[in-house]
Simulated assay, not measured.
Amino acid sequence: MTTPAIDARRLTKRYGDIAVVDDLSLEIAPGEIYALLGLNGAGKTTTIRMLLGMVRPTSGEATVLGTTLRPGVHTVWSRVGYLVETPAAYPELTVAENLAVAARLRGLRARRHVDDVIDRLRLTPYARQRAGTLSLGNAQRLGLAKALLHKPELLILDEPANGLDPAGVAEIRDLVLELSREHGVTVLVSSHILTEVARLATRVGIIDRGRLVREFAADHLAQHVQRRLSLSVRDRESAEKALLTAGHQPVRTEGDVIVLTDSRAVGEPEAVVTVLVAAGCPPYRLVVEQDDLETLFLRVVQP
């Protein structure tokens, strides 16, 4: 039987009477990309900090790469890379100097470790720039570079897309996928961005108020996220009549907006346009929309 990369059993963290993480159990297989999906304040960061030994749980225990976490146990961290919350750096040192310091602390003597990670994270234009002057996105890249310096077996990332522009988000996604698929790295990533989780993870756990309330394979996420075709027309009555005749079930909303939720309309919006144009009431706005994270939570979390 394969040993899990992460095996958390009934983790609980209380501050006074408040349970920030409540009886959470989690098992992540080697090579898996597991996404912990939750709204801000759901308990994602506290869970990650307990798995990294940064916060001692009130009760429960966790095993990381086969090592049970206890005070004074340090050997496992040479195999783990992490980025939690705001990445720390020496503000007066350059990007390259920060990475050189991090490399020495990890016992990495060869300069190539720093050069390789600078190239991989596309930090070459900023290598001689002081860390304190970096944009939020590039500071995040520097934090990721430090997490990857020693080529870890397990990578734990807390909101890695924070501060990155869309191109940067895509780069980090591709990097994580490459690490998992080509190098067998296990990844635990927390996020509140639904679309990124759908593109990245192999399995998703939804955390709400400190409790893991649902787990499912990422390719089943689409079954939980509802999509709809929203269109605006000038002659709503004629448009609804034409759509009903074509076998659709338009949902009434306020104003001139018509919503269709059937899979045929969502999958083939051009066919809907054809129907409306033929009826003499072409739409002046048409868009396929999907649930945001808060809407998904209301459906999944609340019975």
Rank of each mutant, 00 (worst) to 15 (best):
A29Q: 15
R106P: 04
G60H: 14
G38Q: 04
W77I: 05
V21G: 00
L26Q: 09
R106T: 05
N40M: 04
W77S: 11
G205C: 09
P166V: 13
E97T: 00
M50E: 02
Y34I: 00
T68H: 13
G247I: 12
R122W: 01
Q129S: 12
S191V: 01
L142P: 01
G267T: 00
D208T: 06
E85Y: 12
R111T: 07
Y90E: 00
V301L: 06
R122G: 13
T186C: 12
R209K: 14
R211E: 10
G31S: 09
T68R: 15
L296Q: 02
V64C: 07
T45G: 00
Q223V: 04
R264Y: 06
A35K: 05
I156Y: 08
R173W: 05
R203I: 02
L157S: 07
L155Q: 08
L212Q: 04
E237D: 12
V251S: 10
P282H: 09
E159Q: 06
H220I: 00
L149H: 02
E294W: 01
A88T: 06
P160I: 03
T63S: 15
H248C: 01
G267V: 01
R234P: 02
E294Q: 12
E196Y: 10
T274C: 03
T202C: 11
A161S: 15
A42W: 12
E61D: 15
D291H: 07
R141D: 00
L286S: 12
T86V: 11
E237M: 04
G66Q: 10
L148Y: 07
T45C: 03
Q226T: 04
S230R: 15
T2A: 14
V301M: 06
R130T: 09
S135M: 04
V84K: 07
R199T: 14
D22H: 13
V101S: 09
G41W: 05
E97F: 02
R9G: 01
E237G: 06
T245R: 15
T67N: 10
A147L: 05
A147F: 01
Y284C: 03
D262H: 07
L177I: 08
R203G: 03
T75L: 06
T46C: 05
Q223F: 08
F216C: 14
A279K: 10
L142K: 04
N98E: 08
H220S: 14
P57Y: 11
I156P: 00
A5R: 04
V117R: 02
V185H: 03
V55C: 11
